[in-house]
Design a binder for these strands. Structure first.
Length: 210
DNA sequence: AACCTATACAACCGCGAGATC
DNA sequence: CGATCTCGCGGTTGTATAGGT
């Protein structure tokens, strides 16, 4: 666990954003040799990165099955439901969202959901269709739509959440309306224009003969 | 146009658990 | 059985960019 830097890594370790070259090196190396044993992988691939950094980059960004951006309303509800159940167990939550990473879910939660939950519940966009969607989700996933019977401690274990269950589910309800509107307004690809997408990388990799 | 602020996301850090030597 | 190593997790920080003034 990174207690001591590996001798061969003391020389030079790059930090910060990954370059396209580094990405390609990592992808090619993993395509040829498989993933795992990240420290030696980083060295063998000739990357001036820690194994940890390589692992993170691969899992969160480069893996071919990773889906990025545009969290669907269904995924959003699932995240809220599972977070209510398990708290900040992001990797556990991520296992139930194919293609989503714990890091992405964590970021999504902190930037989009938690923010709304911390607001008072006066902003309630609930309309009939929102409630229907919420009901659907609730019935399919055992999420109580407006339960006051279950405490957060019951749902989340000891380490979690200052909100009362009433506030929590009220906010989920309020939030669902907001997000539905937001999702409708967003064009599917708008968020990804700034990224060179993974299809590009993989097609380049194919061109490289891998 | 320039500056400021908020937001979103990529990446890093520290830690614990489990495996291996 | 202790030391070391790797992996994985959750929290936090850094930075690019969009939006507002």
């Amino acid at each position: 666990m990174d207690k001591k830097p590996c001798k061969s890594q003391e020389v030079e370790v790059r930090k910060g954003p990954w370059t396209m070259e580094e990405d390609l090196i990592l992808i090619n190396y993993i395509a040829n040799h498989g993933e795992g044993v990240w420290n030696s992988l980083a060295r063998a691939a000739g990357l001036k990165r820690t194994g940890k950094s390589c692992r993170l980059r691969w899992l969160n960004y480069l893996r071919p099955d990773v889906r990025r951006g545009n969290i669907t309303p269904e995924e959003q509800f699932l995240i809220m439901e599972l977070h209510a159940k398990w708290g900040n167990r992001w990797s556990k939550i991520a296992k139930h969202l194919p293609g989503r990473t714990d890091n992405e879910i964590k970021n999504y939660w902190r930037t989009r959901i938690q923010k709304h939950m911390n607001k008072p519940a006066e902003v309630c966009y609930s309309n009939q269709s929102d409630c229907e969607l919420l009901d659907q989700q609730a019935s399919s996933s055992q999420l109580p739509c407006n339960s006051t019977n279950t405490t957060n401690a019951d749902l989340m274990g000891t380490s979690y959440s200052p909100l009362s269950s009433f506030d929590y589910y009220n906010n989920i309800e309020a939030f669902s309306g907001q997000q539905q509107q937001q999702v409708m307004l967003e064009s599917p690809s708008s968020q990804e224009d700034n990224y060179w997408n993974m299809e590009d990388i993989w097609s380049m990799q194919i061109l490289n003969g891998n």
